[in-house]
Computed example of a mutant assay.
Amino acid sequence: MSEYLEEVHEFVAQHAGGQRFAEDEDMFAAGRINSLFAVQLVMWVERTYGIAVQGDDLDIANFRTVADVARFVETRLGTDAAVAS
């Protein structure tokens, strides 16, 4: 899948007591992370990948699963790269 998947897995596991989620597991529904983590996750994505997460980006669909986060990063970096060139 995404080249960012493992990095997202590692970050999430650090904040979930070392437990890894399945790529498509809803991290919030599982009850092992909370809304504060959602803020930390968004900030980590911004800091790690240089992405400004704004407005419509803050849709839970972009951050619900590890795969969703990796796909969001991949999409945004692809879009940003296309705009920059």
Rank of each mutant, 00 (worst) to 15 (best):
Leu36Pro: 00
Gly17Val: 08
Asp26His: 10
Trp44Arg: 03
Leu77Tyr: 07
Tyr4Trp: 13
Ala29His: 04
Leu58Lys: 14
Tyr49Ala: 05
Gln54Leu: 10
Ala22Ile: 00
Ala61Leu: 08
Ala52Gly: 01
Asn62Gln: 09
Asp26Ile: 08
Ala22Tyr: 01
Ser2Cys: 06
Val53Lys: 02
Tyr49Met: 06
Ala81Asp: 10
Ser35Lys: 00
Phe63Ile: 05
Gln14Cys: 06
Phe72Asn: 03
Ala67Glu: 10
Asn62Met: 06
Glu25Lys: 10
Val69Thr: 09
Gly18Thr: 11
Gly55Glu: 10
His9Trp: 01
His9Gly: 00
Asp24Glu: 10
Glu3Cys: 08
Met27Tyr: 04
Val12Gly: 05
Phe28Lys: 05
Glu6Gln: 13
His15Trp: 10
Ile33Tyr: 00
Glu74Met: 05
Asp24Thr: 10
Phe21Gln: 07
Ala29Ser: 13
Arg20His: 12
Trp44His: 12
His15Ser: 07
Thr75Tyr: 09
Phe21Lys: 09
Glu7His: 09
Ala16Phe: 00
Arg32Gly: 02
Gly55Ala: 15
Val45Met: 02
Arg20Thr: 07
Ala38Tyr: 12
Tyr49Pro: 03
Arg20Asn: 04
Ile60Gly: 10
Gln14Phe: 00
Leu58Gln: 14
Asp68Trp: 03
Gln14Gly: 13
Leu77Arg: 14
Gln40Trp: 07
Gly50Glu: 05
Thr65Phe: 03
Arg47Phe: 01
Glu7Ala: 15
Val12Asp: 04
Phe11Val: 03
Phe72Ser: 03
Glu10Lys: 12
Ala84His: 12
Glu74Tyr: 04
Gly17Pro: 05
Ser85Met: 13
Val12Glu: 06
Thr48His: 09
Gly78Asn: 13
Val83Ile: 13
Arg32Val: 05
Tyr49Thr: 03
Arg47Ala: 11
Gly55Lys: 09
Ile33Pro: 00
Leu5Pro: 01
Met1Tyr: 07
Asp24Gly: 05
Ser2Ile: 09
Ala13Pro: 06
Ser2Asp: 07
Leu36Val: 13
Ala16Gly: 05
Asp26Asn: 15
Val12His: 09
Val12Met: 12
Gln54Glu: 14
Ala82Cys: 11
Asp26Phe: 10
Ala81Ser: 15
Val69Cys: 09
Glu74Leu: 04
Tyr4Val: 01
Glu46Val: 07
Asp68Glu: 10
Met1Trp: 04
Glu46Leu: 09
Glu3Pro: 08
Leu36Arg: 12
Phe21Asp: 05
Thr48Arg: 15
Glu6Pro: 04
Ala30Pro: 03
Ala82Ser: 14
Glu7Cys: 00
Ile60Tyr: 11
Arg20Ala: 09
Arg20Phe: 14
Ile60Ala: 14
Met1Glu: 11
Asn34Trp: 01
Asn34Met: 02
Asp68Tyr: 03
Val83Gln: 10
Thr48Cys: 12
Arg64Ile: 08
Gly50Tyr: 04
Gly78Trp: 12
Arg47Glu: 08
Tyr4His: 14
Asn62Glu: 08
Glu25Phe: 00
Val69Glu: 02
Gln40Asn: 11
Ile60Glu: 13
Ala67Ile: 03
Ala22Phe: 00
Asn34Asp: 15
Ala82Leu: 14
Glu23Asp: 15
Val42Glu: 03
Leu41Trp: 03
Ala84Tyr: 07
Val12Thr: 08
Glu10Pro: 00
Ala29Arg: 14
Gly31Val: 09
Val53Met: 06
Ala29Met: 08
Gly78Thr: 08
Thr65Met: 06
Leu5Glu: 03
Val42Ile: 15
Ala70Glu: 01
Ile51Thr: 02
Met43Asp: 05
